[in-house]
Amino acid sequence: MKYQDATVKRMLAAEYVLGTLHGRARRRFERLARERADVQAEVRYWEDRLARLQHRFKPVTPRAVVWAAIEREIGVDKVVSLDSRRAPAAEASTARSPRWLQAWAGMATAASVVLSFALYREVNRPLPPPQLVRVEVPVPQPLPYVAMLHPQGVDAEWLVTVSPERKLIRVSASGKYPINRASECLELWVLGEDGKPRSLGVLPNDGSSDLPMPRGVSMPKDPTLAVSKEPIGGSPTGSPTGPVILATPAQRVS
């Protein structure tokens, strides 16, 4: 392709930013843009101009589960800090079970913890894919809070267990609560000590699922769980906006 031709270059940059340049031509253009300042300038031109259309994307609050996944991936808020056990990069990236891990795995078990260890920022180079390693660590676990949520007059219920120490909420749904799945969802809340609801995430429509405990949310001594009907993706405000369909105390299993 005649990249020297200014018109062609302009058009490729425009179609690159618009997205209609695809496949191998797109990759080829990306390589070219990396090497050539004039091409970069043209890309920037279109990025700037077309970005004016961005305001028409309607903001939608993502589910809490996404942030939890990001934290796991970048290694923030690890369940168990690996800082003092950091293996050299080469060893950690290749070894499926480094020595320290074997030692841990051999210990008595109480809980299964998923550790994500990413070597981010340890070395200043492109990151290897994060590795998920499942290890058993001997952490004494208090028993979870449990509640059976059963909305009145509807053949649907959710068994919810909340394990604040493991930062995990497990929900098992049975029956079907009638909502318009195209536009609505059911969101789970815990009423805090101050009586204010805090989101625990969106309930699954069916089956079981694990939700990460949102950051900064703790369980009060006598927690009450509540469910409200919300727009798809969960409450846009962080507080219930739709009707509350039930509220039930949760008991600590003992």
Binding site: Q54, P59, V60, T61, W67, I70, V76, D77, G233
Partner: peptide
């Protein structure tokens, strides 16, 4: 990391709206 969390809170709905669209 705290700043990153705040950044996420302030901006994620805009990115998510675009991605959903």
């Amino acid at each position: 990391q705290k700043a990153f969390a705040e950044l996420y809170t302030a901006s994620s709905s805009h990115l998510f709206g675009l991605l959903l669209r």
